[in-house]
Amino acid sequence: MSIFWLVLLGLAMGAVFGVALEKSRVMEPGVLVGQFQFRNFTMLKMFLAATITGLIALAVLNGLFGVALHPKSFALGPVLIGGLILGVGIALAGACPGTALAQAGAGYRDAYAVIAGGIAGAIFYGYNIDWIGAALSFGSYGKITFADLLPLPFWGLALILAAMLAAFLVVLERLVPWQADMDKAEALLEHDAVPAGRGYSAPAE
């Protein structure tokens, strides 16, 4: 595909991604951190719904049409330590790398600081990759998937996991309805400490 079409395709797919992140409020810092405090389950629900959809889509693409998968390597040191650092960063930034862009698009000015910090972090990693990689080089197992470990084809295991995650979501939704979390997310958009802003009008005489 030429660069022109790659860019156009990326922009179009990203726009769909961005609309979904804004409409679901998953890009809200209060919703992301709220998930880590078990106060709001919007992020987990969106994340698992996307995972289930991906599992089914890839079960069909790979199982029926032989489309190649691209699982990342399992290197215990990097995914464990990197994952922990990434989690700390999500809570401090109130964003993931993708949602930081959605926040900027929706109007949050602090998202630009997150993006700038992210670019600086990526540059720092690129210049220091040798010693960081050497320090974390333990436990490398290659590009393994659970389908490699179990006597099941990828498509079969993908559909089983999709069904299990869907069952979990049904139970979770019964316990915590999404609309209630959405109302909480909406309330978080209002400043309660500072009276100026939306809905505020100066008292008459």
Binding site: V88, P97, A122
Partner: peptide
């Protein structure tokens, strides 16, 4: 936060 976020993501 952004710095830590991407440092972690790139390590992982």
């Amino acid at each position: 936060g952004g710095f830590v976020l991407l440092l972690g993501a790139r390590i992982a």
